[in-house]
Design a protein around this nucleic acid. Structure first.
Lengths: 145, 145
DNA sequence: TTGGTTTAAGACCTTCAAGTCTCAAAAAAC
DNA sequence: GTTTTTTGAGACTTGAAGGTCTTAAACCAA
């Protein structure tokens, strides 16, 4: 069951790593993140470009350049990242793939699925990068394969 | 957010249609289902072949042939169909795509995601084709695009 | 037994997310 | 200035899911 695209997954892992290991000081190079987390450098670059254009990250070119969070980690919600990388239709899907499925023209599993989607959206809304980072650094939870 | 493959989605829609419109008597041809639900005939055939081999459907060739449920619709759970078409790893995935993520080596969102997956599994476990069919025929819920 | 109707099986094609590659642009160090 | 290091941008390739096509096999009916 694949819910998030690779782009979202890589972004969340990489930014959690930044928060957990880099203390939010200065720029972190994409090359280092790519090596540390075993994620394709060019692919990661493309993902970060989207997040930079969306204002979630700031980037800097040249020696000692890289990316950093545009705001403190406790202000950046997981859902912001998901919104950018998955697009606005992410929480607007029907489990049976029926176009136009909704409150007034539902499929047979609409009610259940609407609740399940809302629970996921809420989780993404309530979770910040700071929390992910804290979990990883304090409790030594996994972030690498 | 795509959770189920097209195969599962088409199977659920087609079998719900059978239960709702065909009264569970005799064989229903794949051609009719394909036309009624606007699903590729050959693709639907391949999906039903898997369900037939798994013992969920029975098929019959020749004139007036087709497929039918191997058991009464109230005995066939949605999860049986999902298990066949999605494979055994469907409910065993990590939201962050980390291999080996589990109770003793969790990713930062493991706890939440384990509960969400369990809720979905339970829903699929409790829902039968009979219920889907009833919803469609009684409440005129949508099953076609 | 011939021909029409249907599923079975597998080869083949298409599409798109995922991943790679190349060159340009910005910044720093020399 | 020139070189090195880094991100930016876009073309290109790959792999897997989705979809199509062809032939075989089973079945019925005239």
């Amino acid at each position: 069951m694949k819910v998030l695209s690779k782009g979202s997954v890589y972004a969340l892992r990489a930014l959690t790593y930044v928060v957990a290991h880099k203390g939010d000081i200065g720029y972190v190079s994409i090359g280092e993140l790519s090596r540390s987390l075993d994620i394709s450098f060019h692919f990661l670059t493309k993902i970060f470009q989207q997040l930079t254009q969306a204002g979630i990250l700031e980037s800097y070119r040249g020696p000692n350049g890289g990316i950093k969070l545009a705001r403190p980690p406790h202000e950046i919600k997981v859902i912001e990242i998901v919104d950018v990388l998955e697009g606005p239709e992410f929480f607007n899907t029907c489990l049976l793939g029926l176009p136009g499925c909704g409150e007034f023209d539902p499929c047979p599993v609409h009610d259940f699925w609407a609740k399940a989607k809302e629970a996921l959206r809420r989780e993404f809304e309530l979770t910040t990068l700071a929390e992910l980072g804290t979990k990883v650094s304090d409790e030594r939870l996994r972030i690498k394969p």
